[in-house]
C-alpha cells in the first residue's frame, strides 16, 4: 500500500522546468530513495510534498487524501539547508519546533525529554546551540525533525554535513524508525547509502523521472547479460570482438563479455577450450553505475 502517491506533478520556475509529469508511489513502511544529480528537481519535489511551495499541476495524495495543511503534523522534514536558532536553548528550541508541528505544550515537553535521553544529549538541554559542538548540534537538528514522531519522514541529503559517527547514529535511527512503521523518503546523491538503506528508489534527471521501482527491480532492469571471466593458461588467441575489456595479469586474462541470446553454459563450455576458467560471474551494476549510465543516456537524448 502506498502512503504517498504523486500523480502528474509539474513545476517550473519561469521558463525552467523543475518537475515534468512526475508519478511516484511511496510504499508505507519502507525507505524510499530519491536520486538525481544536483539541480534535477529533487528538492522541488520534496518542498512540494512539504507544502513549502505549490505545484503548477498534479496531485499528491496522502493515504488517499489530497495533501492539505493538516498533514504537516504527520510529516517530518530535514531540509538539505538546515540550521537552528543559535541563541536559543536546546530544549526550548525543540519545544518550539514540536509545537509548530501541532503538538500540545504538554506532549511536546514529554517528547523533548524522551528524545534528548534517547540521543544522550539531555545534559545539554539548557545550553544554547552556539555553545554546542557541531556534532551535538547535528543531533539536535535530527531530533527537531522527528520530535513529533511523524508517519512520513522526509530527509533531503540526510548525511551531508554530518560527521561519520553521527551519520551512523542517524542511519540507525532511520532504520529503527522504519522498523517501527515510519515511511522514510530520502534524497541523496551518495549512492553507497542508497543500497544500504533503501527498499525502493526513483531517479530524477532534468525534471523527468527516469527510473522507479524496488532496488531489486532496478538492478534487474539494469542487467545487461554481461559476465566477468577470468582465464588461466590461455592457449592461442581468443576470438576478437566479443570482449569489452581485457587485462592480463601474470598470465591470467580477465575480461568482461556481453552475451547476446547465448546461454552462459554454452559460452562457458566454449571458453574451456581456450584455458582454465578461474572465475565466471554476472556483472550486476551498482546503483551508482546505473545512476551514472542513466544520466549519460539522458544527455545524449
Amino acid at each position: 500500500m502506498s502512503i504517498l502517491k504523486i500523480e502528474g506533478l509539474y513545476k517550473s520556475y519561469g521558463s525552467q522546468a523543475a518537475l515534468t509529469n512526475i508519478d511516484l508511489e511511496i510504499p508505507a513502511g519502507k525507505v524510499f530513495g530519491l536520486l538525481g544529480p544536483n539541480g534535477a528537481g529533487k528538492t522541488s519535489l520534496i518542498r512540494i510534498v512539504n507544502q513549502i511551495i505549490e505545484a503548477d499541476k498534479g496531485e499528491i495524495l496522502v493515504k488517499g487524501e489530497s495533501l492539505a495543511p493538516k498533514h504537516i503534523k504527520h510529516i517530518g522534514y530535514l531540509p538539505e539547508e538546515r540550521g537552528l536558532y543559535k541563541r536559543m536553548k536546546v530544549a526550548e528550541q525543540l519545544l518550539y519546533f514540536a509545537q509548530l508541528k501541532g503538538l500540545s505544550a504538554n506532549d511536546a515537553k514529554k517528547k523533548v525529554r524522551y528524545w534528548l535521553d534517547k540521543l544522550d544529549i539531555a545534559a545539554w538541554k539548557d545550553k544554547k546551540i552556539e555553545d554546542l559542538s557541531k556534532g551535538m548540534a547535528q543531533k539536535v537538528q535530527f531530533v527537531a525533525t522527528v520530535i513529533h514522531e511523524p508517519e512520513i519522514l522526509i530527509l533531503d541529503e540526510p548525511f551531508s554535513g554530518f560527521d561519520p559517527v553521527n551519520a551512523e547514529i542517524i542511519k540507525n535511527e532511520i532504520i529503527e524508525m522504519k522498523d517501527n512503521g515510519t515511511t522514510v523518503m530520502l534524497s541523496t546523491h551518495r549512492m553507497e547509502s542508497v543500497e544500504l538503506l533503501c527498499d525502493h528508489l526513483a531517479m530524477i534527471n532534468k525534471s523527468h523521472k527516469v527510473l522507479d521501482g524496488s532496488v531489486q527491480e532496478v538492478k534487474d532492469q539494469a542487467r545487461s547479460n554481461t559476465f566477468s571471466v577470468m582465464l588461466r593458461n590461455v592457449n592461442g588467441s581468443l576470438p576478437e570482438g566479443i570482449w569489452d575489456h581485457k587485462t592480463t595479469i601474470e598470465g591470467h586474462q580477465e575480461f568482461k563479455i556481453k552475451m547476446k541470446d547465448d546461454e552462459p553454459n554454452i559460452f562457458v563450455s566454449e571458453l574451456m577450450k581456450y584455458g582454465e576458467i578461474l572465475g565466471f560471474s554476472e556483472v550486476i551494476p551498482t546503483i551508482e553505475e546505473i545512476f551514472i549510465q542513466k544520466v549519460k543516456d539522458n544527455e545524449h537524448e
Partner: peptide, 8 residues
C-alpha cells in the same frame, strides 16, 4: 537556514 524547517 532555519527557515526551511519553519516553513515546512
Amino acid at each position: 537556514r532555519i527557515i526551511e524547517i519553519l516553513v515546512s
